[in-house]
Design a protein around this nucleic acid. Structure first.
Lengths: 197, 197, 197, 197
DNA sequence: AATGAATGAGCCTTCATTCAT
DNA sequence: AATGAATGAAGGCTCATTCAT
């Protein structure tokens, strides 16, 4: 019985994610429930109100992002390489959607915490990159993160696509450049297109 | 009373723009009307339905964008310089908001036309920039436009801010001056209405 | 100036009549005004509210009906012949429409009076017809009037059409009948199709 | 709860019928809901929009009419007697109201079909009556139906009331018994549920 | 625990009526 | 006197949420 409930909960979250992606943030609870194969009552048993569901979706994506960030940050490489790695792993995460959803979401405590932790980890990486010379020094860490977020939280982002490439290239430190494009192509071949879930 | 009506219409559009920016695309017509100091009936006299108002806002911004684009394109300079100029002039336009609003707007004919014309003008500039070597050649014109749009249609974009600078720098052709940042700083000081922070 | 106003008033009433006939009782004041070539303000100058306009239309038709009734009643013939004559003269009046309009009209004093006078005149005729044997005696005068009204206040009523003929035939007194249909055809040929306005 | 929902649905339809009859076709959905003892939402759960409710009411009455027509048509008797029987059985149906409601109702497919079938059945009866001499031959079947409809679809129609009697008498064929009224009175006494006043 | 019916606040829109020009 | 802009009360409809089964 617990297994059933868990499966329902997962199908609700997954279905809601798909619906939001397909039809925008105004999907009705009724539609979300039916897409998950349950009735509204069941939906409300799992999530006491709409925002709880939306927050759950957001938390899922941000948790994944945080895990990726920490895992990458624990490895070797320059700050820029870490950002690049993270960006590749994030391509499968619905970060663009989550960003949109969160615009109209009164911040949960859990979300605030996740955001803070993500920011802290990424800021640390950015600062390190600026120290090791791999990331432009004429930007604040916050500006680095904004650009990183633009590359990452885009509607149709794919791992290593041109748009991300250009932005990440733009973040490189002054002395690092010329081989950029060739390098990138090489690296991309070995990195996975589908980041972990 | 023609003057009064016009003033009302303008206050409605301006107020709606502000509200959308502040509270997202789901603001009610009632709120928009009251923000403009009129009753709903007046709002509906000027715009027969919600979408007509949204479309008007979008058309306004796109018309401005098109005007800027054409004006700049008629002047001297490389393709990259044109994009840079246009980006600076667009800083005050609510393009980010408009982009969001248009996601849920069944395209008007006028909007389609404006979009097509903007795209055409900007694509021409991008292609020219790639021919004259000022813009990276390893991108499709569409990718150039997407990056340009990301730099331009951002929530808090200011003329010459760091984010735009990095993206536009990223668009530069391979052989162009490495003095990018200094050059930019110089140009920005004389051309932008918003000095760099 | 007085002539202008009068013409406006007449055009409003005539236009409203047409619109009601064409599009039902839910036409808007705005549409009525524009159909008459004036603005709403002018419409309201002539009729302080919608019901005043509707009442005016109803009064017009009822006044015509009353005039016809009295004129016919002053002439020779049996009661049945009078009813028949009146029915023919009424064919051009918008009595069906007026009946519909009056369903949702809180009765004016003028309308009550007109109704009462019409009823009185017609009841007198019905009673006389029953006395002179030309109208069935096994009906109350009110029943006679109801049937007469059904024949007369029909949507597409024409002078002497089959439906009216059958109903009026049905009203005839017991001893009068057989030649009915032939007689009717003859009489119809001499009666006008377009009653007075 | 299926039972509860069904009861609600029935109360809505019945209440709406009453309200329409009492206050005309412009009753608000709010009023209809409250008359049925439910909230608007419930009304809209059962009928997705106003017209669906109106159509349901119309369908109900037309279905009843069709059933009566077919049942009577399957029995013995002249065409005229069939019309007379049908008229008696229809006295309780809200056909007058339905006729009014349908004036402003964009025809549903179901309604079109019901109308077509009713018309076909009744036209067949009328034609048969004209062949067997019981119905006037100098009318088109459509005219017969219009008169029949006038007798039947009247606001306060009762089985065998004077108005219906006169109209149906008017439909009789030339050679039929002059004893009409006596006959009718006799038949009425045994067949109608509503005795003559 | 699941279902789906019921609730009612709130949204978009219309329109009779008023009022400034 | 005419115009047409402004008002605001409804009305139709949706949807998050609650609740009886």
């Amino acid at each position: 019985m617990r297994a059933d409930a868990r499966r329902n909960r997962e199908r609700i979250v997954a279905g809601a994610l798909d619906l939001f992606a397909a039809r925008g943030p105004a999907v009705s609870m009724e539609d979300i429930a039916h897409a998950a194969g349950v009735a509204v009552g069941t939906l409300y048993r799992h999530f006491p109100h709409r925002n709880a569901l939306v927050a759950q979706i957001a938390e899922g994506a941000l948790t994944d992002l945080l895990a990726v960030t920490r895992e990458v940050a624990a490895g070797d490489g320059t700050g820029w390489q870490h950002l690049d790695d993270i960006a590749r792993h994030c391509a499968g995460l619905p970060l663009a959607l989550v960003k949109t959803l969160m615009r109209e979401l009164p911040g949960t405590e859990a979300l605030e915490r996740l955001n803070a932790e993500s920011d802290a980890s990424l800021t640390a990486i950015a600062a390190r990159g600026q120290r090791d010379g791999s990331i432009r020094a004429d930007l604040t860490p916050a500006e680095v993160l904004e650009l990183f977020s633009m590359a990452t939280c885009r509607a149709g982002a794919k791992a290593g696509d041109s748009v991300s490439t250009v932005i990440l290239d733009g973040l490189r430190g002054a002395g690092t450049t010329p081989a950029t494009r060739a390098t990138r192509a090489t690296r991309a071949a070995s990195a996975s297109d589908e980041p972990r879930r």
